[in-house]
Structures are given as C-alpha cells and as structure tokens.
Write a protein that binds this DNA or RNA. Structure first.
Lengths: 338, 338
DNA sequence: TTGTACGCGTTATCAT
DNA sequence: ATGATAACGCGTACAA
C-alpha cells in the first residue's frame, strides 16, 4: 500500500503538500494540486484511516449499544429497521457503525468499557435502554458524546424519540370516538420509557373523556407476542370492548388470545396496536395501529450525534432533543362496540 | 488519558517494559511486573487501540457486509438472529463488529472499498450474497481474509453453511413417507445458493423415490411472505397435496393463500417450511419445518474468520468450510393425504 | 531482564 | 504556497 511519502516522491513535493491536497486545504497551488492528484491516481493511494485517526483523534466510527433487555426483542422487526436506518445514515455521512449487543457472555459494564475506552468510537448511539441498567449514567460519567433513541429522563441526555404519549392518546381517542367506554390496555415493561409514555397517553385520553380505568383493565406485558397472549388472557376476564395494546407484537398475541377464546376481532373486541410493523397490514384482521417511523428515527439519531461530534470542536454542547410525530393507521381490527 | 510513558514514569521503568507487561511478554521480572501493574491501576491506564493498531497492523475489528438483496429480507428475524450470533462470538473473543448494510444511498463497490481499503477491519464476514452482485470476486481480488455465511461456488472461498440440500431432502422425504405423491415446491430466488440447494434437495428426494416433478409444480418465490402468497396462488391451480416451501416466511404466505382459497392446512394441503423461525411454532397451524441454527452459524463464521486471521501470520491459509446439520421439526401443518 | 531507538502513516505547527 | 519537523501512542528489533 502506497503512503503519503510515495505520492510525494512521485509528484516531486513534500508529504505536507500531499496531505493538504487530500484534506482540501485551500492554500495549495492549483497546478501542484493537479500534479499531486495525478500521482495519487497513478499509484492508487488511499489514506490510511488508522494513522489518520491517531493524528486527528477522530475515527468517524460511532458505536451502537443495545442492551440485553432489548436484544430479547430480537425477533421483532423493530430492531432490524432501526439498524437499517442507522447504517444508512452512517453511509451517507461517511461514518461507520460498530454494533455491540449485550449478550449473556459479557456484562453491561465490560461492554461499555470496551466500546468507550478503547478510542475506536467518536460517539455512541444507544437504543431503548432500560432505566435500571445503568448504561446512561455510565455514558454521562465517561463524557463521551452520545444520543439515545427513545427519551431518557436525565436532563443531560440528548435524545430522539417518537411522540409516544401523543400516539397513545390518539389511538385511545379513536376507540373512544368509536363509542367504546370499557377500554383496557396492555402495556410494555414499565421500566422502559416508551411503555411508560404509552400508558400515560392512554390514561390521559381516558381521563380527558371522563372514562374510568379500573386497575384490572391495565395489564403489564413485555413487548413480545407471548406476553401479549398472556396479558390478554387475563384481560378477557374483565370483558373490555376494546384494548389499546402498547406494541404490535403484543397486539398479535392479544388477537390470538381473543380468537383462541372463541371471540372475534373486531366484532367482539376491538384491538389497536403501536408500531405499525411491516406485517401489521397483512394480519387477519389487518391491525389498526399507530405508525412510528423507526427507520427515520434511527437516521435522525445518527445525524444528531454527528452534529454533536462536529460541534464539540466548538463549545456548543447544548442538549438536543427531537420528537417525531406518529400517525394513526386505520385498518380492520377496530369497530364500534356492539 | 495516561499513556505508556506516564505509567513508565510512575513505575520507574521504561516504556518498553510497560508494553511488555501489557502484552504478557514472558521475559519480565515478576517484581517489576507487579510494580508496573500497580502503576497501571493507579493512573487508570488503558491501552490506546488506535495507536496499537498503527503499530501492529491489526485492529481486532471485523466487518460484516450484507448486500442489498438480503437487507430486503429485513423484516425476517433471520437477520436479527444472525447478528446476535455474530456479535456474541465477537464479544467472546474480544473483537468488535463493524456493520455495513448496502442501502440505496451507496452502491456495492463503494461500500466494499470503504470497508476494505481503509484499514479499519482485519477481516470480513459476509452473509448470503447473491451470486451476481460481484461482492465475493471483489473480496477475493482484494486479498482480505473473509468468510461467507452460506456457501459460495468459487473454490477459493471459505464458508460456513447449513446442509440445505440434506434439510430439503429430509423435509421432502417426510412428505413422501406420509404418502404424498403430488408434491410442489416454492423456491427462493435462484440466484442465491441456499435457494438452489433447497431445490436440489427437493428434486433429489423426489427422484430417488421415483416421483415426477412437472415444471408447473416448481414456482420461484423471493423469500418474503408476499412472495409466498403469490407463488402459492399459482401453485394452487396444480392441486398438489403437499408443498415444500424453501423458507418459513414464504410458508407463512403460502398458508395464507391456501386458507384464503377456502382450503385447509394440513387437511387439504400439507405445508412444510425451512428455517424454523421463532414464530413458526405459534402459527395456526403450527408449522412443520426444517430447523437451521442461524445464530450458531453466525458464531461459527466469526470463529472461523478469527482463526484465519491468526493463522495468516503463519502460512496456513487453506480454505476452510463447515456445514452444519439441520433438524426436522414436526408440527401440525403436515398430515397424510386424504 | 531491561532500555534505546526507530517505525507505523498522518496531521499540524512553524518557518521559509 | 511549500517544506521541515514534531507530535499521536504504541510495538519491537537490537543492544546492553
């Protein structure tokens, strides 16, 4: 592999000049610039990223950390879409993405150290961390630039999120407008902010419309289909006419539980989900749900992070937060109460 | 951040000695070793990966390349499981994984160059590349160590794969033993080796048992649910009593098409899939399918790659190939012909 | 066993 | 505008 030195020899200039050409430094004579560029082409020179990183202290690599709790949701397309969005945004801006999933073989602290302290990453993206896994505090402590996908209560963290509260409220109000009064909800794990927020939105809609929500109509699930099935089984005893389910995976399980009990969706019970997974439209019945732009959210997260990385050279390190709107996808799984 | 120099000062030795301690070099006095280790603890020294890489020319980073064609299958849990396996194996061996998905924003050649030529990755893992996307030839050309997940016909490539031919044959023979004679198949995209191999296994089983396979009983799909639905719609006209479907996603679509036509699975048509996705067991009816160890396959791929990276220092660069067995998961979607 | 000195490929500072 | 020269942090022959 040719180096700066080689190019310099061929072009008959010094390394410094070649370096300037490569980095688009303004003060270099147009003629020598062309000479150097020819030399670069000729010997097939490509800058060595590692050497460059050693000198600049920047790698153009960002680390994506996904804790164990979420990687359990692995069978959920959510994860794949997020990754697609993140890598796509990275591609666009010439960054690379190092992926690290917490798995059983290595604990959270070790992973964090390996990612953060080895100097390979300029910044970190982290998705849907639980409130209690200690990752965010550690990141704050380290001082490495990071952005979370999904809000975090700490005032110092920058995040991107979708309007979970608004989306949940919108979904619930849709049920209310259809005429439902006895509405239940299946929540996600309440140690995750999206689950909390969707419950909040649900309760707000119900409260605003003067509808009571007895405790028995709120069942906590775990964002999986099996969890949805189990939660719905319990909810069935309370005979709601409609259910707001905090994720599509949960909703799929809930629908199966309803059908398994010999009831029909939506004739006996209306079901509305959250996420708008690719499969939601082709379920039987097609699932009414709240669309969230997962891929776009991840893209945005990367952009915000890169923006922070650039600003850091200056001193404008104010917290950045962006919340994206959701959208109601009306399909067949909801109808008026009979 | 403290450097070798700092540690050396504190311990009262030279940088070289500290370096030796860190790299477990044998020839260093136990007493000085302890002194150095104390110094390291004291100032919280951590080796700087980039500087180290510049000197050793190794990064302990492997790049995972997934071409566009596969990233379309994104909604398939296959992808997530593969990633989980790969990252897990990386964690275990102290490697990092740089993920790069080919997306619309950047073409294949550019991506390849960015990954391979910048010196950030020691080796490359690539999943299910199409035969015609040119990635493998480029990798061979570059000379970078790589392993593909899924076999590749070129004699120079190392790969790990599951026994697609054997699995398909096993599935087909299961149908034959049940008494089926008129058996159709829905294949994957035939520019991908797994799709080819599964078709081969199917044909072999049929041939070995003296069963004819008219062309009309072979329909090419694209590994998606929608594709399965469309393919099955065509296949229905031929009235097979059983169908071997080359993937579970396809099979899910096929089942829906059958049910949509007012027929029952398995009473009217038996369906057998391939993959054993997590959802296969909870479908209605539960899907009989061929289990393939996706996560384990990815782990293995990482291990083989790392093995090659280590051997490369020596000269044993023989091609390595491993094929993992599959397993038949008998569930409800197959029965004897009526 | 330990230290010296050089190299890894760039960037950046300072003269010229 | 260009060219020495010193970092960047570490590994490693080689010498001691």
């Amino acid at each position: 592999m040719p180096t700066l030195q080689d190019v310099a020899r061929i072009a008959g200039v010094s390394r410094s000049t070649v370096s300037r050409v490569i980095n688009d430094h303004p003060s270099v004579d147009p003629r020598t610039r062309r000479r150097v560029q020819r030399a670069i082409k000729q010997c097939g020179y490509r800058p060595h990223a590692i050497a460059r990183s050693l000198a600049t202290k920047r790698t153009r690599i960002i680390g994506m950390i996904i804790p164990e709790a979420v990687s359990r949701l692995f069978t959920d397309p959510y994860f794949a879409l997020m990754l697609r969005g993140a890598t796509d945004a990275c591609n666009r801006s010439g960054y690379q993405l190092i992926l690290s999933l917490f798995t059983a073989s290595v604990d959270s602290k070790t992973m964090h150290d390996r990612i953060v302290h080895n100097g390979y990453v300029d910044g970190v993206l982290t998705a849907n961390t639980c409130l209690d896994d200690g990752l965010v505090p550690r990141l704050l402590d380290t001082g490495i630039p990071f952005v979370t996908i999904g809000r975090h209560p700490d005032a110092r963290v920058s995040y991107v999120d979708v309007d979970n509260i608004g989306g949940a409220r919108m979904a619930t109000e849709f049920l209310i407008h259809l005429g439902h009064k006895r509405i239940g909800t299946i929540t996600g794990p309440l140690n995750m902010t999206p689950a909390q927020d969707r419950l909040t939105g649900f309760l707000k809609a119900m409260g605003d419309n003067g509808l009571p929500v007895p405790d028995a109509l709120i069942v906590e699930g775990d964002f999986t289909e099996a969890g949805g099935r189990a939660a719905m089984a319990r909810l069935l005893e309370e005979r709601p006419t409609a259910v707001f389910v905090a994720s599509d995976s949960l909703a799929i399980g809930a629908v199966k539980a309803i059908q398994g009990a010999g009831l029909r969706v939506p004739e006996d019970i209306s079901v509305i989900g959250f996420d708008d997974l690719p499969s939601a439209a082709s379920l039987e019945p097609a699932l009414t749900t709240v669309h969230q732009p997962i891929e776009g959210l991840a893209q945005l997260a990367v952009e915000v992070l890169i923006d922070r990385l650039k600003r850091r050279v200056q001193n404008g390190i104010a917290v950045q937060r962006v919340v994206l709107p959701t959208e109601l996808m009306v399909r067949r799984s909801c109808t008026r109460p009979s």
